[in-house]
Amino acid sequence: MPDDAGARDLWQLYEPLHAVTYFAPEARAAFEGAGLRGFWRGYFAGRAAPLGAVPAAPVTALFFSFAPAMVARALPDVWQRASPEQALAARLDGAVAALRAVLPAEPERWAAAADLLEVAARAAVTDGRALSAANAALPRPAEPLARLWHAATVLREHRGDGHIAALVHAEVNGCQALVLRDALHGGREQLQPNRGWTDAEWDAAGKELASRGWLDDDSRPTAEARAVHRAVEDHTDRLAAQPWSALAPADRTRLAGLLAPLADAAAVVIPYPNPMGVPGPRTT
């Protein structure tokens, strides 16, 4: 079994490959071509489509940090504009076009990275992890960039499902998680509107955290809050480590080397800071 830090290091390399589907113009154009105009229609339809034509409630639960009212504005309306099958096709086509536009033209690297990433993705145990299970059940693409993106998506949803499990274990709900993150690292001006929470809901979450002794009178995080946050992150890393046991240490090292320049190239379309918590592009 790889160490937990190794799982986090690899996540930082494959997450940018997945995230082009949210930020690249090619991805946005593909969703619009499928009838999903507007960023959030494409986001909710594309990410939820592996589950089928689901209503708002399960998506609110599984996506976790979005306000229920925000999810309800998109679902189930998006399924009147595009079927899940159309949304899935647009998602994959847009992601591949985005990666092709920014990655170095090294097809052999793409294929080699996809081969190794797929080994981990196929090994991922998805018990209790609905988003990763739904993505893992999709047909395996044939084209190397499509395979690379799909494997990265299975693994990032596997990690995300585990992160939510860690937050639930810590008795932290979606809005509270964002308020705590803002207290620790800042970013309310981005996190709150992008997840749809009202000022009243945000403030109520802050008061609950303060009642636990996690925020002081100036809404700054206490030592206990920092400990809880660290425990959640460590728990997330532990839960994300399992798929990597399918790769030998030498193969994990090789994969990291293959992914590094691809992650750096994909990072150009991702805003920083971002709600995913992915660090900015490397400068060396």
Rank of each mutant, 00 (worst) to 15 (best):
V59G: 01
F31I: 00
P84A: 02
A69C: 08
A165M: 06
F23Q: 09
L191F: 06
R28Q: 10
R156F: 06
F23E: 13
P281I: 04
A74T: 08
A146F: 06
L209H: 13
P68I: 03
W110Y: 11
F44R: 01
D218Y: 12
D4V: 04
A134Q: 01
S219C: 12
R226L: 11
A112N: 06
P281C: 01
L138E: 10
A105N: 10
P243H: 07
P76H: 12
A49F: 01
Y22G: 01
G280F: 06
H229V: 00
G187I: 00
A123E: 00
A34R: 07
A27I: 08
V59M: 04
G174I: 08
A7C: 03
E171K: 15
R28T: 13
R212Q: 15
V78D: 09
G277E: 07
Q176H: 11
A82D: 05
A30H: 00
G128F: 10
P144L: 05
E143N: 08
D77S: 11
F39E: 08
D3S: 03
W244V: 00
R109T: 12
W202N: 04
E201I: 09
W244R: 00
V54L: 02
P271I: 08
G35H: 06
L10E: 05
W11E: 07
P275L: 08
H158S: 02
H18K: 10
F23A: 10
I270C: 02
G52R: 01
A223G: 15
P193W: 08
D234V: 05
G33E: 00
A246D: 00
R238P: 03
V228W: 14
A130M: 14
A95F: 06
R238A: 01
D217S: 13
H185E: 15
T126S: 11
L62I: 07
G174M: 03
Q190R: 14
L239S: 02
D9R: 15
Q80D: 12
T284Y: 13
L255H: 03
A260P: 10
A130H: 13
P104G: 07
L99G: 03
P139Y: 13
A267E: 08
L148Y: 10
L167G: 10
W202V: 02
P275D: 09
A82V: 11
A204F: 10
E26T: 06
A151W: 14
S65T: 10
P25M: 01
L17I: 12
L155C: 04
Y43L: 02
E108Q: 14
A183G: 13
L51M: 11
N135S: 12
E233D: 14
A98W: 14
E106C: 09
W202P: 05
V71H: 04
R282L: 12
A57H: 05
G280I: 05
L131Q: 02
A248E: 15
R47L: 02
E118K: 05
L13C: 09
V20W: 03
P2D: 00
P107C: 05
F63L: 08
R147K: 14
L117N: 04
A263E: 03
P25E: 00
L92S: 06
A204N: 05
L148G: 09
F66S: 10
P68D: 07
P144N: 07
A250G: 11
G35I: 07
H18C: 01
D9S: 14
P58V: 03
W40C: 02
R37E: 12
